[in-house]
Write a protein that binds this DNA or RNA. Sequence first.
DNA 1: GGTATAATCTGAACACTGTCAAGTTAACTG
DNA 2: CAGTTAACTTGACAGTGTTCAGATTATACC
Lengths: 208, 208
Amino acid sequence: MTTAPRATYHHGDLRSALILGAQELLVEQGIEAFSLRAVARRAGVSPAAPAYHFGDAAGLLTEVAIRGFNELTRRMAASTDAGPRSPVERLHAMGHAYIHFAFANPALFHLMFRKEKMRITDALKASANAAFSHLQATVSEAAGISGQHVSEDLLASMLAAWSMVHGFAHLALDGQFERFATPGTLDAFCDTYIPRAIGQLRLLTPVS
Amino acid sequence: MTTAPRATYHHGDLRSALILGAQELLVEQGIEAFSLRAVARRAGVSPAAPAYHFGDAAGLLTEVAIRGFNELTRRMAASTDAGPRSPVERLHAMGHAYIHFAFANPALFHLMFRKEKMRITDALKASANAAFSHLQATVSEAAGISGQHVSEDLLASMLAAWSMVHGFAHLALDGQFERFATPGTLDAFCDTYIPRAIGQLRLLTPVS
DNA sequence: GGTATAATCTGAACACTGTCAAGTTAACTG
DNA sequence: CAGTTAACTTGACAGTGTTCAGATTATACC
């Protein structure tokens, strides 16, 4: 129960500390600055210490990604919890939440969708599935489908919505939209065009 | 004019050989296997040789990315050149070309949209712009706009279309769609759902 | 309490990597 | 043919992921 750090050995909860440290490194310095040794240094532990808990770098990054998917799920859920709105409005809010999560944690977002840097474990799949099922449920509602059967039309709608927000986030983070916005106004540009782009989905236009 | 390789020094056209070698490495072994030294080995030169021509790794990768954008442009243009079709059909074809380019060269596609691995030169911007302007022109036609003025509505349509195909390619390459397809049928799944997803764009539905 | 055992971490090493300064050779230029 | 410049090598340095034998500490058991 001692929270004071030991001088040597037996950190106390090194596993969590390493995951947290890795997360901080990603947020503060980006994915290029990440290294196992840097994470070890930050935790005040030897370079080989992470290997004991995670095997290799992929093992540690997998844990970070899992927490990323959990946070994404939390944000998407929170975005639809604020008051009763129409399914279409909720889907809009979820798209916003998805993209803003990416903007808030670019390095983490990129990591989460780079399978070659991780070990595809059941835990990782589960956390990713949780995030996706939120999208699926909301798209179902917006499409006016109550049953749990996933029709091909519904799947197409889900893929379209997911691809759209995912692609938008990715292109924006990569600076591809600097083509359109004058320097310094990229955030404003995105704020304007996120709803406009999402509005281009057939699902989200008023049924005529 | 000697095409025979020298025993030492003065490769002949090392610059091109390195760019080509890097491209091959990406195609054959993925981005994780890429390293400046590996490229140098493949070309039969010393580890420091690439630095003379490109400065650092980012310099070489930038050249590779430029050629990637050029190839993407070529494919998109070719997809719309095959016979006279409606603008909407051409836009569909371009979406297909975009995604299939990504499928054919996953590592190259990823590289092209990772600015932190490259040096954002004017040449790079120009080749990326060329690819994008093809999309812009076709979206304009599909939207029934002939003038060169880019309205906000048109921009929204372009962003939506681009984000959609880009996101689809990205998610598919990352294995996120294995969620839906049984093992081994991912290609078939994509063939089925690429047009369905693209068809979810409001722009591409018959005007009612 | 004392001791075996398991969990946790260190230290040293290996084979890599990108990058740099200085030296070496080939090709061009006048 | 001499001098200059372009093209590459050599050797080195700091940093990386990973492995492994061993040191250290916590825990379980008697």
